[in-house]
Design a protein around this nucleic acid. Structure first.
Lengths: 168, 168
DNA sequence: CACATTTCATGGACATGTCAACGAAGTGTT
DNA sequence: AACACTTCGTTGACATGTCCATGAAATGTG
């Protein structure tokens, strides 16, 4: 059922890439948790927060920056707050809002996690690409990730049946 | 805190690729669910099962093939069974085991989902790469995904502190 | 054959994500 | 000012994944 629709080359490359898409993140996550006790998402929140000079960021802005839903970020930061990694402060600008702040503990944890994580990224990824490959991969990634998110402009190809074929 | 550890080129390429790593699967998943009501994992189970001539596969073997834990596959197939997509049969070879079988419904659903999914893969990925890029990406993916999974041989780099820095 | 060990599928507890609904607070219009 | 509308963060129900424990069955060893 699989091989009829793609050329042999496409099939092979797509399969290989799909495998990379699952294994690489899994390995990086495993390393990070083993080394530091942080999940990948924890790490992203901490490192994004640390980019601001005062280590503070309004929830909605951080959510936008990370391309997360506010709900997701709210849930996750509640858990991180319980662990003492970040804090909430009222937003002086908007009484509905809240500021997320990296605690000293959070900053220390991030400071110690960063080198371990980067070593892992090198070992499991960067070190196995030469500069030309890395460059091409970067440009190709940007190109594809920057495609419009909605499907309104899917190339002239006919649209699949809209109805759901299975209940879920 | 980010830019000190990678060269500018590495930093840029890694960031771009990391973004691809989250956006592409999310888009494909969204398309698939909208078009067919299946999740990506549903689709993988169905299409892997369909590769066997008799559409049957022992749970443990399917789990190994998909690189899933047996627990995960058991949970997931229970849900898929409730939806009528697959069935369980006793394994005549091993009374502990069980065979997972694609139902007729499941096969029909897969048959209708496949073209829609492939169109999505084309629109959001394949169509934006030329053959040389695709070829390189495929080879590079295989190379990295095939690296040993354990960390025993992480290149001469010093190991990070083993203890957990934060409780979770 | 008895016995310990391993393998298999399942189950429950928990972590993390999605989605829809909510109340409180901002904004715009008249 | 009064009103509808939007935005913000939180919440709860649910889906899905991980981890660990379990009982049943297979396997290996004396």
């Amino acid at each position: 059922m699989a091989t009829r629709w793609l050329s042999a080359d496409e099939e092979l490359a797509w399969r290989a890439f799909r495998r990379l898409l699952t294994t690489l993140p899994a390995r990086l996550a495993r390393d990070l948790t083993a080394d530091t006790g942080l999940s990948m998402t924890d790490y992203e929140v901490l490192s994004t927060l640390s980019e601001k000079p005062d280590r503070r960021w309004a929830l909605k802005d951080l959510a936008a920056k990370m391309e997360w839903s506010r709900s997701r970020l709210s849930h996750h930061t509640t858990r991180m707050q319980d662990r003492g990694l970040i804090d909430r402060e009222p937003d002086p600008t908007d009484a509905r809002g809240c500021l997320l702040k990296l605690t000293d503990t959070g900053y220390t944890v991030l400071e110690q996690a960063a080198p371990a994580h980067l070593a892992s990224v090198r070992d499991r990824f960067l070190d196995h690409l030469d500069p030309a490959e890395l460059d091409l991969l970067g440009r190709l990634s940007t190109r594809i990730a920057d495609l419009p998110d909605d499907r309104t402009q899917r190339n002239g190809r006919e649209r699949a049946a809209p109805g759901r074929l299975a209940d879920r």
